[in-house]
Design a protein around this nucleic acid. Structure first.
Length: 605
RNA sequence: UGCCUGGUGGUGUAAUGGUAGCACAGCAGAUUCUGACUCUGCUUGUCUAGGUUCGAGUCCUAGCCGGGCAGCCA
């Protein structure tokens, strides 16, 4: 079933302060096309917070027939790796697949900015191409063969030329101050900084020095290129910010071509410009950088329309850690099974957990876009997952912690074929056969020798319905010498089967079961929240709050039809929760299921 | 105590000078061959103080309380 078709038709089109701005620009016809971008640095895995940014940027592009470029913000080779380029690209494609992949802007493989004439002036421009226009006949996955993400490193030549322009205009200078001295000269938020003694070098000397920086004449940190703005500015980022630093480090995309690298503030605004970005959307910590973003663009006399930056507040879900530094600790200290551990809020982890992309999208879009620092209740996410899966997941019978139940009035080799509904939420539900035999397994939680009040399940002398089968009555509890329960002996009332005269007979409890002989064993991983407190990131000792019971592994018994499950399937194990095959550890004949999420349980209060 | 920015039920979000709405969570009930889903009902909110106005969550003033910013990280 197509997940998109399950979206309630009543869902209003998202609206927020950024979309309002875009809508106004569209009404004014300010831009020929709305172009946004998602610009991660390839130095780690994407997480649920990035998912919000992805959905915002791709969503705006999609709603306005525009485009959203995937761009690696790769200006710091020391921290980056192609491993992350690949994982980020895969994660983005997974998240937007079928929803916004037609607005995904990629570039023809190896493309770099080309000179163009704009408004009678020479300019560089790398026209963004939507992935739908990049399809090659050799690839049925769209652009994958012919195209790749944009990279800030694609623009290093052009960025260098822009830096030269700034120097020629007397707007940038080469500084000989060491990193420590630069820091001391900067002052503090409430005290102005001091001007560097090298601030007023001649254009010729700056040009010479900057070219020699590029040529590799100086060691790391010996010199830097700085914008000449205002050391007394109340905004720290306007106190002659660094534009280039020397780093004799090979780069994952450009190899050893460069030994100077632009910093974020210089590279980002110009990368946006070069791609024709109209709305550059980032998180609020960059708010204080916006004047610098504008300063660089405005001081270069660029001929085309300039991008503008807009900021929104990050998504922080409760019971989760989204700080990259802390995620690294969880992975490095082996508290989890790698970056795609199903308990992690990484996109790779959520995907491996079995969470549909549509549910992730529904959640992050549903939380809205504001500038307010909030903590979003994880229950909202859980609700979105259940809502998607309730509509689409096939129901199956599975017993997580089996206890044997013997139907004494059935013959040992007798099989009664029962009819089970695949999904009662379907307008015209389909069915499948399940086999009822003399020996079955039921959930150990569904039996209590000494039942608590209002216990609807199996108890001594009591009756329950085996779902899709019949009502059974508990006659005898068989124990071994140590007192452990070996089996429960029951009588089946076959007249209560579906289609039989007494099928309408009501009993309070209905429980799930599988045949002992016609079922398959499987490893099932029961995941729970990774942290025990709502805001594990609030304090430094977040590792104290790791939930020791975040993973329980059981050997379950599954109805035999589950033997042919694929990793694309999502199931509801009735009365238990939603499950999917683990894409990494499952093997043919040796299935491993992950619990995506439990069913809502108002009884387990 | 510099600059930027924000404050609406428990949580998140809407209302763009005119009935404070929606979702999640919670509670109560109905229904149920999933203690699910569904349905019904309920509880709970405009940071404070002044001002403008017929009318203020919204505009103005002052205050209070958050968040962000001092990497040659992004």
């Amino acid at each position: 079933m197509n997940a998109e078709s399950n979206a309630p038709s009543t869902a209003p089109a998202p609206s927020d302060f950024i979309r309002d701005i875009v809508a106004q620009h569209v009404a004014e016809q300010r831009y020929a096309k709305i172009v946004t971008r998602f610009p991660p640095e390839p130095n780690g895995y994407l997480h649920i917070g990035h998912a919000k940014s992805i959905c915002l940027n791709f969503g705006i592009a999609r709603e306005n027939n525009g485009q959203c470029n995937l761009r690696m913000d790769d200006t710091n080779p020391a921290k980056e790796d192609v491993e992350y380029v690949d994982s980020i690209t895969a994660d983005v494609r997974w998240l937007i697949a079928g929803w916004a992949d037609h607005v995904l802007g990629l570039k023809p493989k190896g493309a770099t900015p080309a000179k163009q004439e704009v408004a009678g002036r020479e300019d560089y421009y790398l026209a963004p191409v939507p992935s739908s226009d990049l399809k090659s006949e050799t690839s049925d996955r769209g652009a994958s063969a012919a195209a790749e993400p944009f990279f800030a490193s694609d623009y290093f030549d052009q960025l260098y030329a822009y830096a030269l322009t700034l120097i020629r205009k007397g707007k940038a200078y080469v500084d000989d101050l060491s990193p420590e001295e630069t820091d001391a000269y900067r002052g503090s938020p409430d005290k102005p900084g001091r001007e560097s003694p090298w601030r007023n070098r001649s254009v010729e000397e700056n040009l010479d020095l900057f070219q020699r920086m590029r040529a590799g004449e100086f060691p790391n940190g010996a010199r830097s290129l700085r914008a000449k703005i205002d050391m007394a500015s109340p905004n720290i980022w306007l106190r002659d910010p660094l534009l280039y630093r020397i780093r004799h480090t090979p780069h994952h995309q450009t190899g050893d071509k460069w030994c100077i690298y632009p910093l974020y503030d210089f590279a980002h605004c110009l990368s946006d410009y070069l791609e024709g970005i109209t709305h550059s959307i980032c998180t609020v910590e960059f708010e204080v950088h916006r004047p610098l973003y504008d300063w660089i663009l405005e001081n270069l006399d660029l001929p085309r329309a300039l991008p503008r930056q807009y900021e929104f507040a990050k998504l922080i879900p409760s019971y989760m850690i989204v700080s990259k530094r802390r995620l690294i600790r969880l992975v490095d200290e082996k508290l989890v099974d790698g970056w795609d551990d199903p308990r992690l809020p990484t996109i790779a982890g959520l995907r491996r957990r079995g969470i549909p992309a549509s549910a992730l999208r529904r959640f992050v879009i549903g939380t809205g876009v504001t500038k307010y620092d909030s903590l979003t209740d994880i229950a909202v996410f859980e609700h979105a997952i259940r809502e998607e899966l309730n509509a689409s997941a096939a129901r199956r019978l599975a017993v997580l912690k089996p206890i044997k139940l013997v139907l004494t009035n059935l013959a040992p080799d007798e099989t009664i074929e029962c009819v089970a509904t695949n999904n009662p939420q379907d307008p015209t539900p389909t069915t499948r056969p399940v086999a009822l035999t003399r020996e079955v397994f039921i959930e150990s939680d569904d039996f209590a020798e000494v039942p608590p009040p209002k216990y609807f399940r199996l108890k001594p002398g009591g009756e329950v319905r085996l779902k899709y089968a019949c009502i059974v009555k508990l006659d005898e509890i068989v124990k071994d010498a140590s007192g452990a329960i070996v089996e429960l002996r029951c009588t089946a009332d076959l007249t209560t089967r579906s289609g039989q005269p007494n099928s309408d007979r009501k009993v309070k409890g209905t429980i799930h079961w599988v045949s002992a002989t016609q079922s398959v064993p499987a490893e099932v991983r029961l995941y729970d929240r990774l942290f025990t407190v709502p805001e594990p990131g609030a304090t430094d000792d977040f590792l104290q709050h790791v939930n020791p019971k975040s993973l329980e592994v059981v050997t379950a018994r599954l109805e035999s039809s589950l033997a042919s499950a694929t990793t694309a399937d999502r199931f509801q194990f009735e009365r238990l929760g939603y499950f999917a095959l683990d894409e990494k550890d499952s093997a043919p004949g040796k299935p491993v299921f992950n619990r995506i999420i439990t069913l809502k349980d108002t009884w387990a209060k």
